[in-house]
């Protein structure tokens, strides 16, 4: 493949395309805005130990359920813990779990859907029936099973959520592939001498990406909430560990007395999802060469 890259560069195609891609992304306010949000949150999560003003576990019973003050800009929770610090530490789990779970579920689901749709026939039947089984299997049960067998850990949460999203990705990908494989350029690729694997990943998949990207951004949001569901049921990460979903859950009963405890993590989730959505939209458009100028 190294040889391939070299040749592409001499053709001026790859570099030209990257340049065009960067230009499109840069000129798109959605991309700039979305990416800024996501990067900011990721940085806050990664550098939480350095940036957080307090230890997220440190309790200060003098200022329980206090609203935003100078010392605690987002206020404190019912144990007097600093909400901003908990939010920053919580981002580590929430972002990691949701992005990771959707990426894993997406990789498996897209591959299944691609293979099923491309080959059709009994391959399709077998794989999609398997996906049906996945879909029919309650993911909460899977989560409980994993916790029962392996104990509580972040990895089990990721696995359970990834498991739940395989069928979404598989179905969407298969639907796209079914129509794309009928296009003549797929047969033309066979005519050139490409084998099935190369045709699937090199010719078909890039043309099926748009709805997959949209699905990705939607599911990241759902995964954050799913993680909080698991935490709420006590089969997620350890209850004391701050996650956005858990913060939201803790504050829910106190919404009339201390609205910030639940509203602030909620807003954090909304902003993240918005950022990912915006970036996803921009990415989808930038990947579509037909959207970029040129005469018809």
């Amino acid at each position: 493949m190294a040889e391939y890259d070299g040749a592409e560069r001499t053709l001026g195609v790859r570099t030209e395309r990257l340049r065009q891609f960067r230009e499109t992304i840069r000129g798109d306010y959605r991309a700039t805005f979305g990416l800024t949000i996501v990067v900011a949150f990721v940085l806050a999560a990664v550098f939480a130990p350095e940036l957080a003003p307090y230890d997220p576990m440190a309790q200060d019973f003098a200022i329980m359920q206090a609203p935003g003050l100078n010392a605690h800009p987002f206020g404190t929770d019912s144990f007097g813990r600093d909400l901003l610090s908990r939010l920053m530490y919580g981002a580590r789990i929430s972002l990691g779990v949701s992005l990771g779970a959707v990426a894993i579920g997406g990789a498996v689901g897209v591959t299944l859907g691609l293979v099923a749709g491309y080959f059709g026939g009994w391959v399709d039947d077998t794989l999609m029936r398997f996906v049906d089984v996945l879909w029919a299997f309650p993911w909460l049960l899977v989560a409980i099973l994993l916790v029962a067998v392996f104990g509580q850990s972040v990895w089990n949460v990721v696995a359970a959520i990834a498991f739940a999203y395989i069928d979404d990705f598989a179905r969407i990908t298969r639907g796209e592939v079914l129509s794309i494989r009928e296009e003549e350029f797929v047969m033309a690729a066979r005519n050139v001498g490409l084998d099935d694997t190369a045709i699937m990943f090199d010719e078909v998949l890039p043309n099926a990406l748009a709805p997959i990207i949209v699905q990705f951004t939607v599911l990241v949001a759902r995964a954050m909430l799913a993680e909080s569901t698991l935490s709420f049921l006590g089969i997620g990460v350890k209850p004391t560990t701050p996650t956005w979903g858990a913060l939201l859950g803790q504050g829910r009963g106190l919404i009339t007395q201390a609205w910030w405890i639940s509203i602030i993590p909620g807003v954090a989730i909304i902003i993240t999802v918005l950022g990912i959505n915006l970036f996803g939209d921009a990415l989808r458009d930038a990947l579509d060469v037909r959207e970029r100028g040129g005469s018809p």
């Binding site: 053709l11 195609v13 395309r17 350029f185 047969m187 890039p206 043309n207 037909r290």
Partner: peptide
């Protein structure tokens, strides 16, 4: 038109 991959340059 339909026999060429819309996402690849014709040179590729």
């Amino acid at each position: 038109m339909s026999a060429l991959n819309p996402r690849k340059t014709v040179g590729e």
